[in-house]
Design a protein around this nucleic acid. Sequence first.
DNA 1: GTGTGCATGTAATGAGTTACATGATTAC
DNA 2: GTAATCATGTAACTCATTACATGCACAC
Lengths: 191, 191
Amino acid sequence: MPRRKGRTEVAVLGALSVSPMTGYALRNAIRDVLGHFWSESFGQIYPTLNTLEDQGHVSRASSEAGRTGATHFEVTPTGLSRLKELLGEPIEPPRPRNGLLLRLFFGRHLGRSACMSLLEAARDEAQARLTGFEAIRAEMATEVAAGLTSEVDQTYWTLTISAGEHAARATIAWADESLQTLQKLDGEARP
Amino acid sequence: MPRRKGRTEVAVLGALSVSPMTGYALRNAIRDVLGHFWSESFGQIYPTLNTLEDQGHVSRASSEAGRTGATHFEVTPTGLSRLKELLGEPIEPPRPRNGLLLRLFFGRHLGRSACMSLLEAARDEAQARLTGFEAIRAEMATEVAAGLTSEVDQTYWTLTISAGEHAARATIAWADESLQTLQKLDGEARP
DNA sequence: GTGTGCATGTAATGAGTTACATGATTAC
DNA sequence: GTAATCATGTAACTCATTACATGCACAC
């Protein structure tokens, strides 16, 4: 019985504050909308919803729209204050665990060409992410035009996309630079 | 009884491959040298060392140098192949969990000024990291000059520092840009 | 009628951290 | 002598993922 420490609650309450939905839709929304900076595993969402319901922070509003039998969850007023409270809490620093950098650090053991493959993969991945962000920007623009999203929300959401773009471009530049560095490394040793 | 999945083993074998040392020194080395992209909790290191010893990948070479009673661990030949094997395994993608971006995404609930404080803190932190990397570069240069570190190792290690620098600069640029965006946000609403 | 996707959960497992517990050694 | 640091471990706990289990509804 895992005790949730608030992080999952923020994602759930926040997502529901944008729009009420079922647990299933919630999982998809978190994956699709918050996916580039947040993830929740499937088995977290329903238990968290139940906990939140017990605390009166969300309530079930069964089947207004959508299929019969599906329960749409919505945030209650106390749930909204809880969200604001959680958002105000200090950010706990993530413990870094970058598998790519760990491999490169011990690159002497891994070998030059394997390291270069890793760098190329990282660069391509970052490039793909960059392309994905363009699509998200376009999609958001249409939603704002249609009145589905407020401009204030758009501003905040764009900040997170921009963060992803900056990070991706930095990765690309670093990878290209590093590939050049390793290219030169051959100079002295092995045939 | 946690089953280790290889990630801790890479860090431990890798660090010991650079230089044999005690478990205690190992913990410090991982914190100080790999710290900007990797972390191991204290309670992981000793159990992992014992597992690795059982498998013959590391051995105890007691008290050649240093204090009496302290056991220096060193990598065995099979440990070295094990390290190479582990380094060659696919990188498991980290599940993103960025507390800062989660807060900014729901910035409408958190409030403009709180968001700006978070951004300023992130920028300052990135700036501090950038300064730290300079120090690491300088220190490494003296180690190479003293013959303690090979130039090949230096090349690989520098790649990881460079990654940190690129990421930090990207964070600074993004935070400054975002602060300007939020500055303008005031335009219409609240007094 | 049947497969695909919607919808809701539980159980087992694992990874990793924190806190606890203990003692030896060196610096002052 | 005593405080700080070196040194080695264990136990409990938390957080989170994966796999399992189940059933309905809608499109074809």
